[in-house]
Structures are given as structure tokens and as C-alpha cells.
Design a protein around this nucleic acid. Sequence first.
RNA 1: GUCCCCGUAGCUCAGCUGGAUAGAGCACCAGAUUCCUAAUCUGGGGGCCAGAGGUUCGAAUCCUCUCGGGGACGCCA
Length: 595
Amino acid sequence: MDLFVLFKDHVQSVIDDLIKGDVLPQSVLVDVNFNAVNVEPPRDAAHGDLSTNAAMVLAKPAKMNPRALAEQISLKLAEIDIVKSAEVAGPGFINLRLEDSYWPQVIRDILADPVGFGQSDIGKDENGVSQKLNIEYVSANPTGPMHVGHCRGAVFGDALARLLEFAGFDVSREYYINDAGAQVDVLARSALLRYREALGEEIGEIPEGLYPGDYLVPLGETLKEIYGDALLSMEEDEWLPLVKQEAIEGMMGLIREDLAALNIHHDVFFSEKTLHEDQGAKIKAAIEFLREQGHIYRGRLDPPKGKLPEDWEDREQTLFRATDFGDDVDRALEKSDGSYTYFAADIAYHKDKYDRGFSHQIDVLGADHGGYIKRLKAALKAISAGDAELDVRICQLVKLLRDGTEVKMSKRAGTFVTLRDVVNEVGVDPVRFMMLMRKNDASLDFDFAKVTEQSKDNPVFYVQYGHARVHSIFRQAQEVMPGIDPASEKLKTASLNNLVDEGELGLMRRLAQYPRVIASAASAHEPHRIAFYLYELASELHSFWARGKVAPHLRIIQEDDWELTINRIALISAIGAILKSGLSILGVSAPQEMR
RNA sequence: GUCCCCGUAGCUCAGCUGGAUAGAGCACCAGAUUCCUAAUCUGGGGGCCAGAGGUUCGAAUCCUCUCGGGGACGCCA
């Protein structure tokens, strides 16, 4: 149960009452945007537990003084059982304070359903059925193992998928394999070289333009096992498809392993190549579909400003009228050799997703694809007649630092850092958490020294230690007070009396915010908000724990007071549950012990 | 030349889709543990929210322009 949603309903019904009582004019029902009315925790806790701006939003349309209106509303709100006081403050805020006896309810709610607490229904339709949502992320070219650059999008997409699932969506995780372009041809040629090497040939330096990486060596061996020396006697148009097929499978195997090392698993791997099969039947169909709607025409494009490509030729071509859907220019669908552009295939791909029932789509792309957003959105709008929505999230670059100096990466110089290197060196949890401590569209410094540091300076350990601390207290309690069992069902029926210290109340208030944090992070597609919330929750826990050092009556374990001890155990058990819940959304483990 | 992202404390960043006196961490200074893990906690100084206009009861947040950093700009993927 989300406290803030509950009170928004209360506020709404008070407004309805005031309209019925002719205090407010009927006209506000049409004049007021009720979405602007909100109930939220005040920034300053001294202002109370909940705050609403209702009077200020309503004042103007109702032609009333905001403070006078606030008085009227606050009187009604004060009648609610659990409301201790309702005060008007500032320009017309209504600050609510709840009875201290209310807060333990959040502990009961959490203990009753530790895994489900905070789940949201924003992903569900009016019948309570989860809506289908497709999130495409990673989609690295299958030409080699993943490097750190891919890492952020992978972690972000995965965490967002988990978050949206938690928020009620029926989520499908998808990987788009770019197995149709020229790059995979280069891959195949590079692989053939390794194949010849496996057959004993001296291949020398890898020629410019081919992939030099050692990771292709095993692929050469595999080709040798499958084909013997048969490929050597074939023409390129004969061996290329065979080698390409094998190479892509090999590279996708590497990539899947890399992703698995990060705890990332996709539901669907969609091959771009399948769109091009049968003379591009699927792409042709998508273009035909658009043509029927009048969104395709033959025309010329202006050459791009800034730098003119050397082989620029002005020609009439098949164009998608993207400008009708918010893009800056219309977009080409066919290359000069008659084959389809990458974008044309992508239109077919997004149409395919739409046809599979995904009206909610998210693409997670790298920073270098920023210029691609508008045309993708335009395409989905056109293909779904405005029915589907696409959000494109861009992940900015990660700057790798070692001892404070930037690690420059270059494929030529062979100094690029693979994802696997990073995971092996620092571990999955720190990598994931670090990537999620930043807003996705801000660039990110990733300092090896800091990420591996096991101290409070490292937010991962700080939050995980919060969870470990909860369990540490459990262990201690069972030792000194045999008979107390944190896992027991009895905890759920604890009296929860006497949890009246500011620290305890603060923790309960913080717990009550969890559903709200989930809902806002999910609807904004911003998983980093979870990370910050967890940090704050852990911080309050550590702080309360430390106060027990100087004020013994605040320690969780009170050997001479079983009831209080059990009540506090219930409190920290709820905290542990939320830390675990939030960490699992981020895909980070919640250890019970850290030594 | 056009479009997108960013600009908040010395540093790294939050700021809950427009709310009240702008917050954390690091760094710096001063403290805290006979007993629940010091991988912790308490207190302190530190700000023209890049700048200028505008929108309104109210702007770090929305709009316009300027400056600075990054990215993208027919058929690459």
C-alpha cells in the first residue's frame, strides 16, 4: 500500500465534498488538471509527514485565496483517523502529521509480503492485467567479445527490465543481432584467416580492415573441425555464408557468456538477417504498409551540412516521410545498390515487435546513436498509427580511470578493455551498482580503485553492509536471547509498541516511501533512483545502529526487554527485506555476512 | 550550419516530472567504540544552481537566446 497514493485519494474525495458543498465551484472539475495535485513527503521533515499542494493548484481556477482554501481542505483532512494534525503553511501547503501509532503498519505490511511490498500496478491496465512491454538492450555487433562500453547499456537495460517487471509490466527482454551488414562479412573474412592458420598456414600480420583479435583463433579451429580443408577450394561467395554463419554463432556465444557473467539474460535474440530473407520480404512488407498510408515517396535529399561525403551523389530515391512525425529530415530506405538501409530494416523490426503485441517499447542505445532517436520514434508512430509508444534511452560514455588517470582505449593498439576483464577484476555487484549510481544520460567515471575499495566510500558495500548488518543482528540476538527467531511467523504478530525514537520513526517513514520510489522510477524509466533510495535507507540504518553505541537503550537487542527486542527485530527485518528487494531490482546480491 | 545530451559546493554527483531555507559522498577540520561487525557514526565550514531574459502564486526544474563541454548529422551498423 502506497501511503502517498492513499492520501491523494483522500485529498480527491475532500475536493469532491467541497464541490458538493458548493465551497468550490463545479467549474474546477473541467478547469483543473488534477494530475498537478500531489501528495509527497516534504523536503524538510520538520514540516510533517505528508504535504499536499492541492489548495494552490485549485485556488486560481476556483477564484479563491489559496490559504483560505487550504484551511477548508485541512479541516476535512484532519478528520481522518490516522491524521494527528493538519496545518496550513507557506503560500498554501497543507502539512499533515500522522499518529505515531500509524507508522508500525508499514512494518506489518512489509513482513506480510516482503517480496511483494512496493510492487506497483502502473504496468497494469484497468482490468489489472499486466501490459506487454518490450525492452531492447545491448544489441552489440556480433563481431567480438563485449567491451566496457557495452557494459553500461547492458546493466541499465537489465535493471530497467527488472524494475518494470516489479512495477507490473509483462516484460520481454530482447537483443537485436546485427548479423546482416558488411561488418559480419568482415568478421567472416577474418575468421577464414584464422581457419587457414588452424590448418597450419603462416598468416603473418592481420591485414588492415580485418579483425585482429585472438578471440577468433578458437573459431578457426572450429571451422577446421567442421569443414576440414574443404573451404580452401571454394570461391568466396561459396564459403562466405558458411563461415559467416559459424562466426556469428561463435561470437554470439561469447557475448552470451559475457552477459551471463553480468547476470543478464535475454528472452529473445532477434536476427536482423531474417528481415532480409526472401529478397527482404519483411522489410518490403513494412515499406508497403507505410506506402499505403501515404508515408513513402520518391524524392531527393539535400546533402548533409558540415561535412560533405566524398562520394555524394544527388539522386532520386525512396524516402520515408519522417518529417510528418517529428523528425528533421525524411529518411532514405534504399542504398544506391538497391539494398535496404539499416533504418529500413529497423522499421521492419519495430513493426515486427508491434505486431507481436508490444505497444510499449523501449530501446536502450549508446551515446553515438543520439541522432537516431527521432527517426525511430517517427517510424513507430507511423507504423502503429500513433498507437504504440517508444522510449529511447541513451547511455552516455563511461570513462575508465585507473589511479586517477584515464584509460584510453584503442582497438588498433590492442588496449581495449573487455567487459570480462572488468567483471573479473572488480566483481559483478560493484560493476552493476556503479553503473546504476548515475543517471543514464550523464557520462560516468569508473575508477577501478574506488570501485574495488571495500569501505563506506564505496556505495555498493555501504548498502550491502546494511543488509549484512541486519542479519548480523539476527545472529547476535539468537545467541544472547535464545528463543528469539527472526525467521519466525511470530514476528509478524509483534506488538510493535514503543518504537517511538526519532530514529525508529524516521526509518519507518523511509520504508513507507519505497512504493512511491518504485512507481516514480518505473514511470520515469530511471532505475538509478532505486540506488539512491537504498543508499539513504542504509545510511539511516547505520546511523540508528551507531546511536546504540552511545545510548545503550537504543540498541536493537535489549536482553531485559523481550517485547522491545522483538519489535526492533521486526523493524530491522523489514529494512532488510526492502534492501534486498531494491538490490534485487538492481541485480545486486544482498549478502547476509561480510567479513 | 542543424539536432540531441550535459553545465548544481574544491572534486564526483542527487534533486522525487513546477514547491517551502538547494542536498549527499569525497576532500578538509573537530569528535565518538569496555557490550548488536569502526566495511560504522556525530558535528563544522563551504553555493551568483554557467549567464541573460521570459512564463506564474512559486523556477535548479518549463520556454527563448548566449557561453562552455560531449555526441550525431544521405547509402556505416
